[in-house]
Design a protein around this nucleic acid. Structure first.
Lengths: 349, 349
DNA sequence: CTGTTAGCGCATTCAC
DNA sequence: GTGAATGCGCTAACAG
């Protein structure tokens, strides 16, 4: 009555291995390996027999074993601040699109806008021996930076233009983008422009946007210091609503608000509706990121558009080239790709 | 002048291996392995020496090698329809929270609401030999189903209550939730209720919601067939706007619209604003999913709230138990966990 | 076009 | 508390 009394007497159906497929097809394991990579030179007749055996056994290639032997895991690690922010999930999607089909798979992690968490994630990712790693942001803890530098794999920093890049870069200047937006508002006639953003220094892109705002109002000779700071990023829609109320209470003469992202801009505008403040009549509101909500809200929201998916595609492309170079024995040669941004004027300003 | 003329003369700094650490610390590789897993019995003195060597060499454990030998990759594969939909990215986040700290890492893939893509992804994921796999949806291609059944690892189906579960389930009935929403609208006095959703059958959750709507209007004796169908899911905010215009043109007497998700509901409402149609005066609009935009928009949107992050946490918990069972030699025993939903009435109805 | 040999870096299993 | 032998499943490198 005992189940499986003797050893190796067909346990719970041990997963098929390449050797089993080989035995069944009457070839060597190596030939199976070649047949399955499709690039290998295998006769059609043999391949057919092998594929039949694969089918019968329900065999699935074990890349984790293959990785060990070929010293290529086929992983590209990608760290983004948040998976819930569609800007970054668009970038993740772009990365996926760029590398899938090249036999590479993304290993995704989220830092929660926290450099220490980024450091932990870099360590955790390196443990999987990715063929490359893509990070968001150009600032890192010293340890994280050291690990990235010494990992011996291509690195791509995105969404920023680091002053001292680790390796490759695909990004833009958040400060310049923000500055351009303020200038555009100035051209439209606004003369008292405020900024709404997160309080902490965690979100370095947010900090850069704030910096660009500051530069712009200074060089335009506008009133400075019109800044509302909120809690930890990401600053939410709801916080945007609270912020605009504070803003108007504190500086009733402000005629335009630049928000650190479209999400807070949207929250601000909806709160204005609730209070009967016309946008842009009572106050103009602009955002950053060109989220879907900005294109559909009423009024539609002026913003800085960045092609987030394209950042991912570019980062993926740069990564592929770098990985190829490494394989070809070439020294990669860091590449910097600057992606454009565009101020999109809509009804909210 | 030649670089590295002799063989093995320190190439581009070969990555440190456990054996190197062992040599440097004057112990065996096995002891290093024990020291690094922290559960191992190693004397404090030895551990200190080993950790020093690790530091000096910048050694990072290679889990991909460890996986081969331990037959546990530490991966949990998770397939979601879209990374850009915050409902699902919340679930992914929940999964991550539940399994990280248990030494498990999520391998994320997106199906684009496409069963065939899901099948491809299942195959691709199995190639990495995950310790378990979590899928969204209870319907799959026959091949995908077969692969999941025969993979020999725990499976969790989420966001649905499959009639014939593969293994574990963490979900709720989309149809029942949608039905409850229509009943609530009926209680509020609405008597001509329409549905706005995607056209294709790809989004099975969307199809279930439509089904629940249909049942409800039938059992309530309301006019049937008030249905606007749009293109491929996910139906966007913009499509929601177009849909409500068509809806009102076709059935001017409709007094409430149930949308397949909050995103389309939001788009619909903003389009109403643009056209001067009062919401809910001219027409009430409800959504599904309790997205952030619904809590902040003006008016705030009535919706069905599901705790998406909790679905992920639950799925992760169930997965952990199942993996533990498998390791302990127990037969897991499928678990079904039904998560609650709640109709949240807000200003849009 | 196909097979053989060797070994990737680690953890399991057993000694001691 | 520590070490030695062994092999996980696959592929690189060569041979034929």
């Amino acid at each position: 009555m005992k189940q499986t009394p003797t050893k190796t007497k067909k346990g719970p159906k041990r997963a098929a291995t390449m050797a089993m497929v080989a035995a069944r097809a009457g070839v060597s394991a190596m030939t199976v390996s070649r047949a399955l990579k499709s690039d290998g030179a295998v006769s059609d007749e043999t391949r057919t027999r092998i594929l039949a055996a694969v089918e019968e056994l329900g065999y699935v290639l074990d890349l984790s074993a293959g990785a060990l032997s070929s010293k290529r895991t086929g992983f590209v690690a990608a760290l983004i601040p948040s998976i819930n922010n569609s800007n970054f999930s668009d970038t993740a999607r772009g990365i996926t699109e760029a590398i899938e089909g090249q036999g590479l798979q993304m290993l995704l992690g989220y830092t929660d806008y926290d450099m220490d968490k980024e450091e932990q994630l870099v360590r955790a990712m390196l443990t999987r021996r990715p063929d490359g790693i893509i990070v968001t942001d150009g600032r890192h803890t010293p340890k994280a930076r050291r690990m990235l530098l010494s990992a011996g794999i291509p690195v791509v920093e995105t969404w920023d233009l680091p002053s001292d890049p680790i390796d490759n870069v695909v990004g833009f200047s958040n400060a310049e983008a923000s500055r351009a937006l303020v200038h555009r508002l100035y051209q439209k006639g606004y003369r008292n422009i405020a900024f709404i953003g997160g309080a902490s220094r965690r979100d370095t892109r947010g900090a850069d946007r704030r910096l660009g705002y500051k530069r712009a109002v200074e060089e335009l000779g506008l009133p400075v210091g019109r800044t509302i700071s909120f809690g930890n990023p990401p600053i939410s829609m709801e916080q945007g609503g609270e912020a605009i109320v504070h803003l108007i209470a504190q500086w009733p003469d402000v005629d335009a608000a630049v928000c650190v992202s479209d999400l807070s801009a949207f929250g601000a505008i909806m709160e204005c509706h609730r209070r009967g403040w016309s946008v842009p009549g009572r106050i103009a509101v602009a955002g950053f990121g060109d989220f879907e909500v900005s294109r559909c809200s009423w009024p539609r929201i002026t913003t800085v558009a960045v092609d987030c998916r394209n950042i991912g595609l570019e980062a993926g492309r740069v990564m592929l080239r770098a990985i190829d170079d490494v394989r070809g024995g070439r020294r990669p040669g860091p590449e910097t790709s600057i992606v454009p941004f565009e101020v999109i004027e809509r009804e909210s300003t």
